[in-house]
Simulated scan of single mutants.
Amino acid sequence: MNRAVKRLITLASALSLSLVALPAAHSAPGTYWTPERMRSAVPLDTLTVSPSALRTTVATGAPTTIEPLAFPNGGSAWTGGGAVVKTAGRVFFTYQGRNASCSGNAVTSANKSTVITAGHCVKLDGAYHTNVAFVPAYNNGNAPYGTWNARATYATPQWDASEDINYDIGSIVVGQVGGQYLTDVVGAQGIAFNQAKADNMYAFGYPAASPYDGTKLVYCSGTTFNAFLSNGIGMTCNMTGGASGGPWFKTFSEATGTGTLNSVNSYKINFFPNWMFGPYFGADAQNLYAKAQAA
């Protein structure tokens, strides 16, 4: 992300030849992330940028306007149950000396230990976060399926190099808990790449900034559209800080709570607070996933 964009961030705070991975500093399970620390973690806000700052990232010929949307779900507590209740969770970490939170989701992987989130949920302002952990099915300080500490965190090369909002994708590889692998305990969602941008999708997360409090899994649903100021996709959604990194699903079934992950909550534009944007899952996202699941 260039300096102009960084100044405009508000925080409540291809085939690439390489991916960046750093060991995640963390305490033993159950020692650092106590219920009290989880409840008091400040949400890392969804990045909020100005249209003028993002315009420089748009490819020549990209559209600059879109048709107004209808009014799909703007953000409601998920009460449908199903697999997503266990595969989605909150991501906790220490950022610049404070405890903070995002969202993430466990995906099908060879190592049974891979969580997909946003790039800024693993690294921001030039440094990787520490004390990174994933808490599936988080419930107001409770971790019904355990607290899964990261053993490595990954980001796309573009995010690592310049925090480019077009590649705001990260991954967390967690260690075992009680001798078990993450997805053996909570299940996993599928993941896909190089898909059509316009589709019916569901976005999930644990927004923790007002009017939400981080205690509930929240979702939005609707037809996605081409992001007109980046190469990503957009959806009508009013989730707030803490939702960053939460999964966007194609072919989502409300009956079973299963879908195919195809983006994550990434940023908002300050002129359009009811729209959420996510990065396009192309070759770079696929490389990131391949690297993480092989770790």
Rank of each mutant, 00 (worst) to 15 (best):
A127N: 11
A127H: 06
Y128R: 05
Y128H: 11
V135Q: 00
P136D: 04
P136S: 05
P136M: 03
N139L: 04
N142V: 13
N142K: 14
P144R: 01
G146S: 12
G146F: 02
G146W: 03
A150V: 07
A150L: 06
R151Q: 11
R151E: 12
R151G: 09
T153Q: 10
T153F: 01
Y154E: 07
T156R: 04
Q158G: 12
Q158N: 14
D160Q: 11
D160R: 03
E163G: 05
D168Q: 10
V173R: 00
V174F: 04
G175Y: 00
V177Y: 03
G178V: 07
G179L: 10
Y181Q: 13
Y181H: 13
L182G: 07
D184Q: 14
V185R: 13
G187M: 09
G187L: 08
G187A: 13
G190S: 15
I191F: 05
N194P: 06
Q195R: 13
K197A: 07
Y202M: 12
Y206D: 05
A209V: 12
A209K: 09
S210I: 12
Y212R: 06
Y212G: 04
K216H: 11
V218Q: 04
V218I: 15
Y219H: 14
C220D: 03
G222H: 00
F225N: 08
N226W: 00
A227F: 01
A227L: 03
F228V: 14
S230D: 11
G234C: 02
T236W: 00
N238M: 06
M239L: 14
M239D: 01
T240N: 06
T240S: 10
G241T: 07
